[in-house]
Amino acid sequence: MPLAPEHLACSRCNTPIPPADWNREHAFCPSCRAPVLALVFPAFFSKRGTATSGTPVLEAGEASCFYHPLKRAVVPCDRCGRFLCALCQVEFLGQNWCPRCIQASSEKGQLAQLDPSRKLYDNLALILATFPALLVWPTIITAPLTLYVVVRYWRAPSSILPRTKIRFYIAALLATIEIGAWIWLVLFLIYRR
């Protein structure tokens, strides 16, 4: 991951934008004269926070961190109740979580806030139901496959953005029609004689 530069630069020539032009409309790059809008917010001026490693246990009998027994516990995890030191405490969704709870929830697909990507199975089903139909014969394989995808992934988490199941419905309908057409063709060929 590239580190942020310590200045604001013109996207065209990479020349630093003078501070006098920050948060100013109708500003221009000092080198290429391209119109530039540089919006700066208070986070730009704040010092970077340093991670704390947690304080060691001072007295016997004092509560210690579940993951670091030699560190003093500062909060319990709001999910599993384990005691956490300052190093393990993660503020997330307005609660204190331990890293393991975050990892477990993320792996189960329960935290849309952390998902880096999602598979679009409804699109896959729709593509399987439509594109092979252009060549007709592949549908003998893809139509049942479409129905399998629809049934298998009906309840799978889809996009985290607003999205209906209309693609699944259309794909299932088209696949059913294709399978029906193949059955009709087979029966027609059998009973034609």
Partner: peptide, 13 residues
């Protein structure tokens, strides 16, 4: 939003 430091928009030809 809490982490955003700046937004830079440059008009290109």
């Amino acid at each position: 939003f809490a982490d955003t430091q700046a937004i830079v928009v440059t008009e290109l030809p």
